[in-house]
Design a binder for these strands. Structure first.
Length: 287
DNA sequence: ATGACTGGATAGTCCAGA
């Protein structure tokens, strides 16, 4: 099963990139962030093309800001918009949608930006993350939290750590909040598979940042232990950041092996082998 | 170089993004 997450920076503006990307990469489950549309508009714009590509979906959008969605070709059970105890700013915002897809409770999350360390939005970001942690503590291990976490987990995840001192995304409270999620038994599967590589998912539109590979890794796939144990490949689809009309974020793609039957013995740690050559992976839908 | 780009709402530019 292939799971992907992508901050599309307006799903309507990104349709000319999103639809061909779905047809090419054929992810089974897709988490979208920053859709920037209310649900009826999402439905009007995407219901037909997504059906043609074989996707069911649930969107959670309240207006022109934020907005998340889940697309799936492997079923969509018990979809939920938001989560219990989710804070607002002060009103509710559209930052999390989840459903059980292929036996995994998949969450598409768009963590608040924080703006500046002195901002009310920063306190909101930390409160939102703590509420997410409390919620996830009630969910079983067959779980994935995918999306724009708006936190660079370590200094290796920003192009110039010195340039970020005193800014959001790298502060200790934010990193502690992320560590709280990992403390639940979630695994940062891209970093686990590329422990020493420079891997970014976001590059500012300005000043040729992408061309110079001056980016940040803030879009993450966090997988529960049994899900992380199934990870075969985990990578950033930089191709989607190239060309005309891209999002400023690239998708993250994670391939899972088939789920074990359940009584075959203890689970092993996730393999650390590199991703297989592109184009050679046999996916269930290719059979 | 306190910049540079893009999207949304608006109808001027301003806010938000990270």
């Amino acid at each position: 099963m292939r799971i992907a997450t992508w901050n599309v920076n307006s799903v309507r503006q990104r349709l000319p990139r999103l639809l061909p990307w779905l047809a090419e990469r054929r992810p089974d489950v897709v988490c979208l962030q920053e859709t920037k549309v209310a649900n009826p508009v999402f439905d009007d714009a995407l219901a037909t093309p997504l059906a043609e590509l074989g996707y069911d979906f649930v969107s959670h959008g309240l207006g022109q800001w934020n907005g998340v969605a889940l697309l799936t070709r492997v079923g969509i059970e018990d979809p939920r918009r938001g989560f219990p105890g989710e804070p607002g700013f002060p009103d509710p915002e559209a930052r999390c949608v989840s459903a059980v897809c292929g036996g995994i409770r998949v969450h598409s999350v768009y963590v608040p930006n924080g703006r500046t360390l002195a901002s009310d939005h920063y306190a909101y970001k930390l409160a939102w993350l703590e509420a997410l942690r409390a919620h996830l503590a009630t969910v079983g291990p067959e779980v994935a939290v995918c999306g724009d976490l708006n936190i660079a987990p370590a200094d290796a995840d920003v192009f110039d750590p010195d340039a970020f001192v005193g800014h959001t995304h790298v502060s200790e409270p934010e990193r502690r909040a992320l560590a709280g999620l990992l403390g639940l038994g979630l695994h940062d599967v891209v970093r686990d598979h590329w422990p020493g590589e420079r891997v970014y998912t976001y590059w500012d539109y300005r000043a040729g940042m992408f061309h110079q590979n001056l980016g940040m890794r803030i879009d993450l796939v966090l997988a529960g232990t049994p899900v992380a144990a199934r990870v075969r490949a985990a990578w950033v689809d930089r191709e989607a950041r190239k060309g005309s009309g891209p999002s400023d974020h690239a998708p993250v793609i994670v391939d899972l092996d088939e789920a074990p039957d359940g009584d075959i013995g203890p689970l092993v740690p996730p393999p650390s082998a590199p991703a297989p050559p592109r184009g050679r992976r046999i996916l269930p839908q290719d059979r």
